[in-house]
Design a protein around this nucleic acid. Structure first.
Lengths: 204, 204
DNA sequence: GTCTATACAGCGATAGAC
DNA sequence: GTCTATCGCTGTATAGAC
């Protein structure tokens, strides 16, 4: 592992544990048994460390992305979401302290919103596909269905915040991946809902 | 308005705008055209300012609480939630920067979790009442229903975080109060769902 | 109650030796 | 590449005059 990489790993650990504002370049250097001057040789300032971590976050997401199975391979969809959630959890300070980071670096906000906008498009495709194949219950009103996309997006962007407020026993990433898909069960026709429920119960 | 109150009002404004960590006692004093020494006469340190704000938050909640209508007065329930959300929005730094505040003052975490635990109990009562009066659709499985309480709690505790991620045009407090109740529409029997939908569309 | 002045600690960042 | 030393700035908190 190169020194630059070791710095990022230590910084990530400390940011997640103690917060971006509290952790200084001194702390990161000390954690590595390295001088602060040397750290500044590799990264001119703290913001550059944060930006490098954001880059690594997106790289991790990309390399975890297997080839897209069809929109209707349920198990694949669930596991893929679990994977993404695990990576988000690895870099959780970006989300748990999003407002703090965005204030330092508006660029981070822009990039994260772009990322979630792409996700939003994917989810919308799935919903439209389900509409097209007539898999939603007939009684569900358009008003109700309008909220569905927002509900997914809410869950995907903000689940890390909720971890402290909900009584969760198991691995948060796994729990909230299941939670996210459980959102739409009551919108689906009984057969489709049963299908999904089985997957949610048996997987992970 | 007493000086102590003026300090709290200024501090709240600045915390919401620029973040708890960034805003210092100097900033608060300057905003009031007051010396920093004088501020420290009224509040010995920044943490005491934050704790006083938490107290005021709970006071505001309490005084906004009208007498509880029955569990089944829908309009009352919606307006009451909108009110609570508005107050949360007034003190939003407590929620948008919850992890940062909690690290400084673990006491704040304890009190907020207690508050939401009480809310959790109330919601659970409503759900149980709906079960008892047989208002949920028969096809909804116990597995699905288990998630309902968590969905409500997730929404109520974390909606402020989601404001930046969702494309919201109107007043966030109003939007998310409606959003929260829209969660359970697909779980309800058609008649009850229609009833709720009408309220959600016509109110606010 | 309100002010000015000050002590003290910690942070970001740079310079220069090895 | 890595170190030590150091500067300038900002934050918290206190002391003492009015």
């Amino acid at each position: 592992m190169t020194t630059k990489e070791r710095i990022l790993t230590a910084a990530l650990k400390l940011f997640n544990r103690d917060g971006v504002e509290r952790i200084t370049t001194r702390h990161i250097a000390a954690d590595l048994g390295m001088s602060q001057g040397n750290l500044h040789y590799h990264y001119p300032n703290k913001n550059e460390v944060i930006l490098a971590l954001l880059q690594r976050f997106f790289d991790d997401l990309k390399s975890a992305q297997r080839y897209e199975g069809g929109l209707f391979d349920k198990e694949e969809m669930l596991l893929s979401m679990q994977n993404n959630f695990r990576i988000m959890h690895d870099y959780r300070f970006f989300f748990l302290e999003d407002k703090v980071v965005w204030r330092r670096l508006p660029e981070v906000k822009k990039q994260l919103l772009e990322y979630f906008d792409i996700t939003r498009g994917r989810i919308n495709q799935v919903i439209e596909g389900y509409k097209h194949h007539d898999l939603f219950r007939a009684e569900v009103s358009p008003y109700q269905l309008e909220f569905l996309l927002d509900q997914f997006l809410f869950s995907i962007t903000s689940w890390l915040h909720a971890v402290d407020y909900l009584p969760i026993q198991t691995d948060p990433s796994a729990y909230f991946a299941k939670y996210t898909f459980s959102i739409w069960l009551p919108y689906l026709k009984p057969d489709e809902a049963e299908d999904w429920e089985e997957i949610l119960i048996s997987t992970g």
